[in-house]
Nucleic acid binder design. Sequence first.
DNA 1: CGGGTGCTTGATACCGATCAACCCACGTGG
DNA 2: CCACGTGGGTTGATCGGTATCAAGCACCCG
Lengths: 228, 228
Amino acid sequence: MVNKILRLNSRDRNILMKAPIMASLGPQALNRMMDLASAVSFEGRDILFREGEAADVFYCVLSGYVRLYRLNKDGREADIRICGPGENFAECLLYLGPNYRYNAQAAEAVTLARFDLAKVRAAAEQDNDIARSIMQSLANHLLTVMDCVANDRLQTAPQRVAHYLLNNCPKESTSASIRLPFQKSLLAGKLGLAPEALSRAFSALRGAGVTVRGRLIQINDVNALRQI
Amino acid sequence: MVNKILRLNSRDRNILMKAPIMASLGPQALNRMMDLASAVSFEGRDILFREGEAADVFYCVLSGYVRLYRLNKDGREADIRICGPGENFAECLLYLGPNYRYNAQAAEAVTLARFDLAKVRAAAEQDNDIARSIMQSLANHLLTVMDCVANDRLQTAPQRVAHYLLNNCPKESTSASIRLPFQKSLLAGKLGLAPEALSRAFSALRGAGVTVRGRLIQINDVNALRQI
DNA sequence: CGGGTGCTTGATACCGATCAACCCACGTGG
DNA sequence: CCACGTGGGTTGATCGGTATCAAGCACCCG
């Protein structure tokens, strides 16, 4: 497992500064947070941490994708969230219990910024900018996950896929083409589907003008998708 | 619709001070927040607000239960969260867009504490205690809703019910009896089930020593429930 | 060429939603 | 006191959607 902890190189620093949790900070809060960040990378399938382990750091993705998921006692997995570049996770532990509450796995090779929970907690106490940025992040994640619950409970597989596509194509366009940023099996998990169900959902959407070849998705009629 | 806005009476003040979002505050932060609170009550089935409406206040439940839910375009409803006494909701809008993101309905007669979003936001900027308390609340809700996603995706109806019962009976007990604090149909929604499915799940749990009469639930063997 | 891996397709089983009927407790009014 | 209506809950029958299992396919890379 390749996960040496390093200072951030200048390219990673640039990426990190554009991440939402950093971008809204004033200059000195930004410096303070950047000083707390270290870099770490993992290979695909590496486990970053497991549910129940002692939590001492939270992460912000610089490149690649990370899967947050739970296991039931039979060993079945359910994805809770997929985190891509600029997204942070486990920051909710800043003010909660001492253990991780889900598993995190690299879906591919990833580089991450690492933040010591205790140090960021201390920084947030002293700098309102940092506290505000954390609250924004928490509030955003909360709404995202609430959306997820509502979608799971209200939408069928083709509707979830249509919804995902609409959220990932330019607004106000009549047609669009999208390149998935990750494997279809990952998208399936994100949408709460088995890979087979995602495949069938794409077939069902062919009738609505959706063409799939590999990671490329052609949408002929965006409005037709909205009717699904 | 009975929803006159009043100063809190002394009984409501006592309840509110014990709510998690207030209980962790130091004395002057507590006073500051108590001064911002006003009281409002609704009858069962009243709508507190709808998705998309301009959001100017968030709430803390003093008595009764509130349903947060979404609609799909066919008008079907899906509950996102059920809030009981001491719980607050819509506080995530403190640092987000100007509109409510879900509907809120009184499941029965309720009394609520009302907080002006802008005033609390200003208070949080000045008082770290308040900011910390909000972060704790957000982090808690985030984990709760994440649990909800994982449970929806991993558990069958009887498992969800068993899980709910276990979370609501004293730890380390061999048997227990529970009185549901609300209607079964509300529990069904909370667990992402149709009322009929909840009813069937209870029947299925009879084999595991669960007896239901009205709102009273007898659990003969807590450990048997854990095996479900 | 051979063997992965990711994806698709088909057959089947299961779970829960839905619809409909019924039950029961309760309150109301004749 | 009883007829009636209402609301919450249960039960049964059916349907639809998705998981699961199994087989086959396409592509990449050694």
